[in-house]
Design a protein around this nucleic acid. Structure first.
Lengths: 192, 192
DNA sequence: TACATAGGTTAACAAATGCGAACCGGGTCT
DNA sequence: AGACCCGGTTCGCATTTGTTAACCTATGTA
């Protein structure tokens, strides 16, 4: 719980009043391994803060092919962010890869307090800006790095995850097949 | 000029006061074809609104390989956005592909008015959220679509650009070589 | 114990794309 | 006209990655 406000106020300071209001919105939820926090097709209304476990955000196309857009470890915002801010139907599935704890709140409760608490809207602004910066960085990595380099970057960014989740989820995060990831791992095992 | 405020207030309404302040910051600039609006390495301070011409945002790695991250047509925000909001050194070049008109302002002048004008900060929030949504969409397109599909999408999104800028800029935007784009164009010319 | 299942690796082949070089047509400059 | 140059196309070949299928191991279950 304090971890959440540590996480938030490190992004942007919040008045005690704003913190109280925010606290009033949040509800603790357990999300069992394999269960979904958001589904494609819906207009999502809930956002959350992951405090324990691992989740993935993934896209699935008409042929059923999946792409793991993001992997989440605590403390992270989780939610169908694009759908929440745009009001458009959600395209992204959010799924627990291990048993998870998520503090959730209705997104509308957040936005409806922007007028009363400018510091809350400031937090939302800074958060959106950070989201953008992270996405831009990810775009550059996808386009400019080859799969082996992306794999090494993944290992740096998520040192614990490689043992925690199946290889095929990592492969999907890297934008390659499990076959190709296996080849990459073998080539590194030989040379390093 | 009115086009700018049309563009802005369509994103989020602005009070007359806020519009006046914003207007006071903006300065019209001509940017000749080939010239740069932002360079990698600097911490950028200026943002801009493109009102005429075509620009590109591109990344260049250590080997000199380039990737056209974004193509801009009027009216668009242009600026080293990630650098501006994060304060980190800029990674992205911004270059005029045709003669351009850009209305520029110091980013700090904008942020320093957020306290006085919450509607300005709201605009900034909504803008950041939109930026994120667009970037997420682009990420999905890059990962889930093959180069031919991305080319068709480009044609839909920028119906005029194919005649206006060289093919190799389009290829770079699509993440492929001019050679491959040429093959794709030929294959479409045969079958459609 | 025997069986089934899931995840990971490997092999053989196919498809997509990059790379280097050649070629070509339309401008432009002298 | 002649000599460039730039951008686009094309060719042949190499590389990367996907696809399909087989196989192996660990784990769970009847």
């Amino acid at each position: 719980m304090t971890a959440i406000f540590d996480f938030l106020t490190r992004i942007s300071p919040l008045s005690d009043d704003a913190q109280r209001v925010l606290l009033g919105m949040l509800r603790e939820e357990s999300l069992g391994k394999g269960n979904y926090f958001a589904l494609a097709g819906n207009v999502e209304t809930q956002y959350g803060l992951l405090t324990a476990g691992v989740m993935r955000a993934f896209y699935r196309n008409a042929d059923g092919e999946e792409y793991n857009k993001t992997l989440f470890t605590p403390v992270s915002f989780v939610g169908a962010y694009a759908s929440l801010v745009s009001g458009q139907p959600n395209q992204i599935y959010l799924q627990a890869l291990t048993d998870c704890t998520v503090w959730t709140a209705p997104y509308a409760s957040l936005t409806s307090n922007y007028d009363r608490f400018p510091d809350l809207e400031r937090l939302a602004r800074k958060l959106a800006e950070r989201y953008y910066v992270v996405k831009e960085q990810r775009e550059l990595e996808i386009v400019m790095l080859d799969a082996g380099e992306r794999y090494q970057l993944f290992q740096q960014q998520f040192p614990t995850l490689e043992q925690l989740i199946p290889q095929y989820h990592i492969a999907s995060y890297l934008g390659i097949t499990p076959t190709q990831l296996s080849r990459i791992r073998r080539s590194f095992a030989r040379n390093d």
